[in-house]
Structure formats: C-alpha cells, structure tokens
Computed example of a mutant assay.
Amino acid sequence: MTWDVEPAEGLADHGDLALDLTDVLVALGQAAQEHGRGVAILVDEVQFLRSAQLEAMIQALHKTVQRKLPITFVGAGLPQIAELAGDAKSYAERLFRFPEIDSLGDDDAREALIRPAELEEASFASDAVDLALEITKGYPYFLQELGYQAWEIAAGPEITADDIDAAREGYLTKLDRSFFRVRLDRATGLQTAYLRAMAELGPDAHKAADVARVLKRESTQLGPTRAELIDMGLLYTPEHGYAAFTVPDFDQFMLRAVPELVVPEVRRRARRTSDGHP
C-alpha cells in the first residue's frame, strides 16, 4: 500500500533535529489520519540513541499526542531507558509506559520448548524440560539455542534429559563464540578487568566499592570505566550504587573467557617542568 502525498516546502528544514523531526512526524500523522490509518515507529536498542536524538524523538512524539494524530512509538532497550528518557525530557514519564520484559516465567518457558516440538510431532521429556530451564534460566534466546542443539543431537522423537545434557557443550560454545563474545570484544583492557572482577563476585548486582576492592583500586578511579560499560550496554544499574550484567550467565562466560584476572597498571601522567614541557 502507498499513500500519495503532495510534497511540502518549508517543512523540516530548520537545521534543528527536534524541530525537523517534529515537522516530519506531524506531517506523517496527518497523512495517516486522512487515509484512516495508523503509524507505528519501532526502535530497538534505544539506549544507544544520543541524547539529542532521544530528546528530538520525545519532543516530536509529544506534539503528535497533543494533536491526537495516529502515531505510536515502541522502543526496546536496557532498563536504563526510563532514566534516559526522563533526563532527555521531564514529561517523558507521562508520555510513555515502561514495562519490564525479563526472562520467561516457568510456564511460558516450558511452552516455548514443548509447543514447537509438538508441531513437528516430537516431544520433550518432563525431566528434559526441567534441565533446560535450569540451564537457560528462562532467557528466550538461550532456550532457542539449547533447544536447537538438543534437536540436532536427539536420536528419536522424544528429547530426553540426556540429550539436553549432551547439548550443553555445543550450546555454551555457540553462546561463547557469538552472543557473549561480540560484547566482550568491544571492551578495553581495563573494562575487561572490571567485568572479570564483577564475575568473581558472582551473578548478582554489586556495589562499585566491592568491584574496586577486587581490582585493588579506589571507586573514584574506576567511575569512568563503570560509566563506559553502562553506556556500551554491558552493565546496567538496577538501583543506585549497584551495577549488574545486562544478560544472564555473563559472569560464567567471563570466568571461562578470562580465567585469570589481570588488572592493567595505572597510567601516570608525565610530570611537566616549569616551562610546560614533559
């Protein structure tokens, strides 16, 4: 389906992202309204939008709401997006809802394994499902990957607990080489050490001071590193003063990928002479 819309001059040419985007969304909303349609804007990884981009999006959407235009916005991202949106525009908390989507509950996780298998005239033994949920903790992608690995191994139409156990090695290898590795490969030496120190403390959220203690540094020295890891989407802050990994089992991956904690030496600035030269 296409809409024929007359081109408009003098719109979205302010040179200001917020004003230009507002013009675009208002014009889009008006066109949708005239055609009896609605528009959904879907954005993934919202936390990676720059502050100016997020502010412009919120401002533009606010205008479409004020004019009751048929435009809606669905954004997905890490838990900090509610805070980021609030920092960008104070009225964001009134404009959006921020539901949390976590790992699947027990019933849904079981359904995610059992139902697709039934459609292919196969089944999972009850203890196989129990073991799969224990390994994956109900995380959707982990369920998908472990289910695939077990499907490839199973000899008969029923997938057993032994099949799940045998699939574990291939499952971890796949996660380590792709899902986890692409996250770690972006980290610097000090960032890697910070993640490894967190892994040493376990899978839960940890105080910045506790991580600094493992690294034998002061919290103030590591504040920028912690902030960088949050900006990269590797950590998030479930509550003030604490940080946690953004995906399950990342602590176990760090222990496998970096068997020994190596802390880079502190870089000291060269002293300068009275004339300003090193």
Rank of each mutant, 00 (worst) to 15 (best):
R177L: 15
S178L: 15
Q33Y: 12
D87A: 14
A193F: 09
G77P: 08
D102Y: 02
I41F: 05
A212P: 11
F253M: 00
L84S: 13
A85E: 00
T220I: 10
G233M: 00
P79A: 11
V24A: 11
V43S: 10
K216Q: 14
G77K: 07
L172Y: 12
A82L: 12
E34P: 09
F180Y: 15
V129Q: 00
A244T: 13
L21Y: 02
A167C: 04
P79K: 02
P203T: 04
R97E: 13
Q53Y: 00
F98D: 01
I71P: 05
L201G: 09
L146E: 01
A82K: 15
Q80E: 14
L235E: 00
G276H: 09
G189S: 14
F142T: 10
E34I: 08
A205K: 06
M57Y: 00
A197P: 08
M198G: 14
Q33I: 07
L255H: 13
D165M: 13
L84G: 06
E239W: 12
W3H: 07
P264S: 10
M1F: 02
G156A: 01
I101R: 08
D108S: 06
A197I: 04
R196D: 01
G75L: 08
G77W: 03
T160E: 00
D127A: 11
P278I: 06
W151P: 01
G223D: 10
E169T: 12
W3Q: 02
A92C: 04
I58N: 03
L28V: 12
A193I: 12
L95M: 10
F48T: 12
D107P: 03
T220S: 13
M198P: 05
A92W: 05
Q47N: 05
T160K: 04
Y236W: 15
E152C: 01
R177S: 12
F179L: 14
M57V: 02
A150D: 02
L261G: 10
M198N: 04
G147V: 02
L215E: 09
K207Y: 04
S178R: 15
